[in-house]
Nucleic acid binder design. Sequence first.
DNA 1: AAAATAAGTCAACATGTCTGACATAAAATC
DNA 2: GATTTTATGTCAGACATGTTGACTTATTTT
Lengths: 165, 165
Amino acid sequence: MSDIKSAANLLFLREEELRQGIELLYYAYRDFTAEPDSMLARYGFGRAHHRVIYFVGRHPQMSVSDLLGILRITKQSLSRVLGQLVRQGFILQRPGSRDRRQRLLELTEKGVELERQLSENQRQRIAKAYREAGAQAVEGFRKVMLGVIGSEADRRRFERGPPTR
Amino acid sequence: MSDIKSAANLLFLREEELRQGIELLYYAYRDFTAEPDSMLARYGFGRAHHRVIYFVGRHPQMSVSDLLGILRITKQSLSRVLGQLVRQGFILQRPGSRDRRQRLLELTEKGVELERQLSENQRQRIAKAYREAGAQAVEGFRKVMLGVIGSEADRRRFERGPPTR
DNA sequence: AAAATAAGTCAACATGTCTGACATAAAATC
DNA sequence: GATTTTATGTCAGACATGTTGACTTATTTT
């Protein structure tokens, strides 16, 4: 094979490999969210509610700003979703003791239960994928995913140890 | 450490590991779609337009049914987005020669250009992540992602060889 | 000839996102 | 102590993306 042809071939393989990466992310995310979405629909909730419940469960006593920072949406968008969850008794708001302007968020018992139901599906899906792929593959998965994540601050969330605020 | 305590610890580690998996998917997908979304906004388009352009570019001459099968949305949802792309000259529809009920889809030159611009960002993000993580990690990433994908049919899209119709 | 399929259309509605403007309370700064 | 900044909330209007349901047309399959 000529140099030119093999260079072109390398480029093709690379292009193909990258497209596969794009599609792996697309299909995996689509399937990862499909079941929780259909559970949420039974409560009249959507994916946005799941994200709020998930992150509040993960970081109890987080402030509204912290949550906005993770979700990267506007406060007006969050407000509708969060308001519903508070009014329907899934999330509790308490003024911060250090800074009383803050509204610290935590799940109620009802909220914990819903969170558990919703995430159970996703945990099992991940557990199955991890089990089938093996520990070394999981390490590779982590590395690649961290490379895809844009901000250093977000990557730091995945260092060992308890979750950061 | 007592047996009970170490078993609990194992469970905790496992739970933590699975939660990290969930979050890796969340953050990676969020950052993966952020830039194309903001480019699309300049055309008055959204993520749905990107998905249509992407998959039509990937599988030229695909039918509307094929596209619906990949996207898993209703034809009414697709129709709005696809209609805009056709009217604005990004996608061309031609009746199938074997089955004249079909409308086979392909990108116009303008469509190819937009697709290239939109995907460039994502390709570079993946390329960076792959480069930093190394070939072995990429193999692990592939394995785990395939495990997350639900249907065998979709997993087959990732076998080696040219894309299937 | 009848039934099934591929595609499209019209209508109504829900959800999640946005921008922009404004309000309140508390903390931080001058 | 007065002023500015910050954290949060609210009202209004818009748009993108998805849904269900009903119906049409052309073509293929049975």
